[in-house]
């Protein structure tokens, strides 16, 4: 079967340091794939490498094939053609991922406009506005009339992240990358956002690359997971198996720690 994303022997390094080594994994169309790893294990860099947006100082080698297009070594023009239709990203901190001086409605409208243009569809103001409304509805944002005129600092963290998700969905990507999308949010909001992302990618048939350092969150979202440590994959497999009966010693430590944490919480309840 043809994979949507195939990463093969990916290495990322600066001039004097190797940051990600020999990473390989695949994501099928519509699949929900999770990446777990402690902070600094190379998760975000891997996501950036897939979108071709690595900082200049970091050189990639190996293969990344996204929607049939080779990413490593691709021209800026080829990459630009991938960003949007093939892949879109939701970041960790929704406050800084939104333009502070642009009304939220306009921020969603820009990618909508680009997609409509790309599809050769009607790009009139009413057509764009209609799609923006649709997206706000999809991410379950209340009071769209006021929201489209609001600025990022005027809405809550959860609402900002919903706007960021709407912006990513506006591109109609085949793959959605969510890089720690709930880390900056409080626990209740976290759960809502996780549910929303899972429901939306299933509803729209979008594949998901969900990155988190939180085992429980990834467990809720992903069908398959990869555990990373120090820039390497230590274990890859079905979520149910890796998160209950891991083969790798490091994964087992993570799972045990998470379990102890849960029991401790239950004990207090």
């Amino acid at each position: 079967m043809s994979d949507l994303l195939r990463v093969d022997g990916l290495c990322l390094a600066t001039a004097d340091k190797s940051l990600v080594e020999d990473l390989s994994f695949t994501i099928a169309p519509g699949e929900r794939f999770g990446v777990i790893g402690e902070s600094g294990s190379g998760k975000s860099l891997t996501a950036l490498a897939i979108t071709g947006l690595l900082p200049r100082a970091i050189r990639p080698s190996g293969q990344i094939s996204l929607a049939g297009q080779q990413v490593v070594g691709a021209s800026e023009r080829q990459l630009a053609a991938l960003r949007g239709p093939a892949v879109a990203t939701v970041f960790q901190e929704p406050l800084t991922a939104l333009d502070p001086l642009m009304p939220l409605g306009r921020q969603i409208a820009l990618p909508v406009q680009r997609r409509l243009k790309r599809e050769g569809a009607d790009t009139s103001r009413t057509a764009v506005a209609r799609d923006v409304r649709l997206l706000l509805d999809q991410v379950r944002l209340p009071d769209p009339d006021r929201l489209i005129h609001a600025f990022p600092h005027q809405v809550s963290g959860g609402q900002r992240q919903r706007v960021a998700i709407a912006m990513a969905l506006a591109c109609r990507p085949q793959l959605l990358i969510a890089d720690e999308p709930t880390t900056a949010l409080d626990v209740t909001t976290q759960a809502e956002i996780v549910k929303l992302i899972t429901a939306l990618v299933d509803e729209l048939g979008i594949a998901l690359l969900f990155i988190s350092h939180d085992l429980a969150v990834v467990g809720q979202v992903a069908e398959r997971v990869m555990v990373m440590r120090h820039g390497r994959a230590v274990e890859t497999g079905p979520a149910a198996k890796v998160l209950t009966a891991p083969d790798d010693a490091y994964t087992r430590k993570l799972v045990d720690a998470a379990r102890r944490f849960d029991t401790a919480l239950e004990g207090r309840a």
Binding site: T51, L53, A80, A81, L82, R83, G84, P85, V87, A88, T89, F91, E93, T96, A97, L98, D99, P100, L110, P111, R114, A164, M167, A168, A170, C171
Partner: peptide, 17 residues
Amino acid sequence: SQDYITAARVSGTSWPA
């Protein structure tokens, strides 16, 4: 260097835009 520029690029915004 702000995140929203990276976010705009990831979603395919051209440099002039």
